[in-house]
Design a protein around this nucleic acid. Structure first.
Lengths: 165, 165
DNA sequence: TGGGTTATGTTATATCATATCACGAATCTA
DNA sequence: TAGATTCGTGATATGATATAACATAACCCA
């Protein structure tokens, strides 16, 4: 499978799709999609790009005054375990997963200008890593592939040598 | 180029190689390989596996009582910029680079049992990422590829279904 | 309805990282 | 070689990210 999932142009619809999928999947798996978990997932999706745990916390606190770091981290842990969000290690931040049906090893294209993250799922990359690690006798459990650079839109807009980091 | 660099069996020799290379390269580049930077690089190499900044700090303090977090972070920044150490994003930790001559995009095989990290540099992976990201209009600047799993030794020793995280 | 299990609240703390200002040493330049 | 400039480090404070540990609430189901 090869997919690219930029966020839907109609973002609010995109969010309700994500919440709906999550709810359905949780039911299938007999795990609890509690109001807190739903709300945290919604906050992650509402963010334009990747969002940090403490920013989720700030927003959550507007409506749930007693929220504390563990509140958020536990929800994010759950959402990550179920495959509804992904953690971007190089940013210490989280993004909604665009294809939550299957637990998968995706790759992330992180734009250094606009901050958006696109999730791609390219077999060629996954299996190259798997096979070549295997050549070294290594048994792969998880792959973290995060690619920093310029997304196509930003590249067009500022195609010059603009630098960032 | 395709290499695998497990740490040399004669570790102390491996360390002095690394220090020697770094010294030479710094001279070539006209940057200063100060005693502090040398010592931090040595501490990173002396660590069995990836080492966190604060563990470097603790060890450094044994001999340099006034060391503080910025002391270590600045040295690690320098060493990273020059390509003598790599940061493992998924661990918030640092490893010595086994091939510091060329600044490169490597991949890391992280054993979840013994904690060792092997650096590999496999063109097939690098270019698969580069090309397939390019297909999506993305211009690659940096790749982070960190593979968690079981190294060959640990796989032999505990080839069963031992789980870890 | 009681007892196990799961989820969340609560407090505290661990861990990771940077901002900022001071100051002397190294380097440059005229 | 004097003076300017940059660089490396010291020192203090704080910001940012993440988890431990224990208490309570909600849920489930026999």
């Amino acid at each position: 499978m090869e997919t690219l999932s930029f966020k839907d142009h109609d973002h609010s619809r995109c969010i309700s799709n994500a919440l709906g999928s999550a709810e359905r999947i949780c039911e299938e798996r007999s795990v609890r999609f509690t109001p807190l978990r739903r709300r945290v997932l919604e906050l992650v999706w509402q963010s334009h790009g990747p969002i940090g745990a403490y920013e989720v916390l700030d927003r959550l606190r507007a409506e749930r005054r007693r929220a504390a770091p563990p509140t958020v981290y536990r929800a994010l842990q759950f959402l990550g375990d179920e495959g509804f969000v992904h953690r971007i290690e190089s940013l210490n931040a989280y993004v909604g997963c665009t294809t939550p049906e299957s637990r998968h090893n995706a790759q992330y294209l992180i734009c250094g200008l606009c901050g958006e993250v696109a999730e791609i799922d390219v077999d060629e990359i996954t299996s190259a890593i798997h096979h070549r690690a295997g050549d070294f006798g290594f048994e792969v459990r998880r792959q973290t592939v995060e690619v920093a650079g310029l997304c196509s839109r930003c590249r067009v807009e500022q195609g010059d040598g603009t630098s960032f980091d």
